[in-house]
Amino acid sequence: MNETAIGLKHEELKRAFDRSFQEAPVERDHELAHLLVVRIGTARFALRVSDLAGLARAQSVMAVPAADSTLLGLAGLKGRLVAVYSLAAMIGSAALTTEPERWFVLCRAEDRIALAFTTAEGTMMVPSSELCPVSPGAPPHATDAIGTGGSQLWLLNVSSIAAAIVQSTERAG
């Protein structure tokens, strides 16, 4: 891209930015759910971005001598210790994958809990009207289903998973 083209693009972006302040807010006929799509083995799940305090590529996870098999270990994130739990194990789907869980999200409700999964695929905006109630047989902590058939995703409630972990550690503690 030459200097002239860059200048034109810059001007276009500047105008668009200014216009966004000048124009009346667009009326939305439906709310959008901002979701993070993650993969566990070959299965895909969605998490609400508003439930998350962060997304990170898994550093080295130090295994600990804990009785709870869902606890993968400890990791350091920005100078804090976080407990890394297997998302697959938490939703009773540990059998879905033998691949290493290389990514994790931090729970907003309890930011010392990290949930690890195979990979993060990206984010998506979905109209709330497209979220369907879960059918029997949905994994634990699934609140909604998105899409149908082979492309169906389960929307997982991260806060509920964090609450289950806290409850379990308090009971054991």
Binding site: V64, A67, L71, G76, A83, R112, T169
Partner: peptide
């Protein structure tokens, strides 16, 4: 550093070092 409470009770560990 103390272990996070959400890691549950792991008495054999006194904590962790970065």
């Amino acid at each position: 550093h103390p272990l996070p409470a959400v890691a549950g009770s792991i008495p054999v560990l006194a904590g962790a070092v970065f």
